[in-house]
């Protein structure tokens, strides 16, 4: 009775599923490896100090991506600065304070909708909304990115808030702590990992964004300080990649930028993984 082996049908199911899973995993691994090796292989030889440290000049037929790097940094900083308080605040309100379920439902639905809207539409609306009033500039791009990243920050924060056990809150309330104090001492520390993860995701998303920026931030290559920079049009690295590859056929430069973006992506992911590990460790203590 016990040593009857599995029926043929069940065994077939086992084997088939296992094979499909391994095949899929293999495909995914191969894909990642190929992309990494190919892009780095094509791009790294084209990265020179000159490329990184100069701006492009039609006179000398030189291409430099310094302005694009600076623009990227500016836009990331500006976006995060605006979106963080908005997103975290909204998430805390929704999970800790909101009592009107209907309203919460509407807000969550709105956030969901927002995160589903393609970036090209953000670009279009950003163009109408911001660029038409303040001109095509990095700030217009940053504001567009704020709307885009709001749901991300909200969601990651909310999710980590939900993992803070209700008993912690009850424990704190039981000790006579007020609502705000509970939020500050128990809930907020619990969601730091969510906030940081959200930030990292957002940085990644901003770095990778092109469609939303093309029409809002433009594609100029001028070197500026941060204040002037935000008020002037400028291409981020990603937009520059697109322009160089698609419009100008400069594949060497495009691959160089692609390699840089790839390395940044790796770094960002490392950072995210480290953050998560760190917090997981702290949580298990």
């Amino acid at each position: 009775m016990l040593n009857k082996s599995l029926s043929k049908k069940r065994k077939g199911f086992e084997v088939l599923m296992k094979a499909l899973m391994l095949l899929s995993v293999g495909l995914t691994v191969a894909l990642v490896l190929f992309l990494l090796i190919y892009v780095l292989g094509q791009g790294v030889p084209n990265i020179t100090w000159e490329l990184l440290s100069t701006k492009p000049s039609y006179l000398t037929e030189r291409i430099g991506i310094l302005p694009d790097i600076l623009n990227t940094v500016y836009i990331v900083l500006a976006t995060l600065l605006i979106v963080l308080p908005l997103g975290v605040g909204a998430a805390i309100y929704l999970t800790e304070y909101a009592s009107n379920n209907k309203l919460v439902g509407i807000i969550e639905y709105a956030a969901e909708t927002l995160s589903g809207i393609p970036s090209i539409i953000y670009g279009l609306v950003g163009m109408l909304l911001f660029s038409n009033s303040m001109g095509t500039c990095l700030m217009a791009g940053a504001l567009t990115l704020v709307i885009m990243n709001l749901p991300t920050i909200m969601r990651t924060t909310q999710e980590s808030l939900k993992t803070v056990p209700q008993s912690y809150r009850e424990g704190a309330f039981g000790l006579g702590a007020g609502k705000w104090r509970v939020v500050r001492t128990v809930v907020l520390p619990g969601c730091v990992d969510g906030v940081i993860t959200g930030c990292i995701l957002s940085v990644g998303r901003i770095l990778g964004e092109s469609a939303a920026l093309l029409f809002t931030a433009g594609f100029a290559h001028a070197v500026n300080g941060i204040i002037d920079g935000l008020a002037a049009p400028g291409a981020t690295l990603t937009v520059a990649l697109y322009v160089y590859a698609k419009e100008q056929g400069e594949f060497g430069v495009a691959f160089a930028i692609a390699a840089i973006l790839m390395v940044l992506t790796v770094l960002i992911n490392f950072a995210a993984a480290l953050v998560q590990k760190h917090f997981a460790k702290r949580r298990s203590l």
Partner: peptide, 13 residues
């Protein structure tokens, strides 16, 4: 990593 790669890089490759 795959998720973080900008879409233009996918386009380029």
């Amino acid at each position: 990593l795959l998720a973080g790669i900008p879409s233009v890089v996918y386009g380029l490759v």
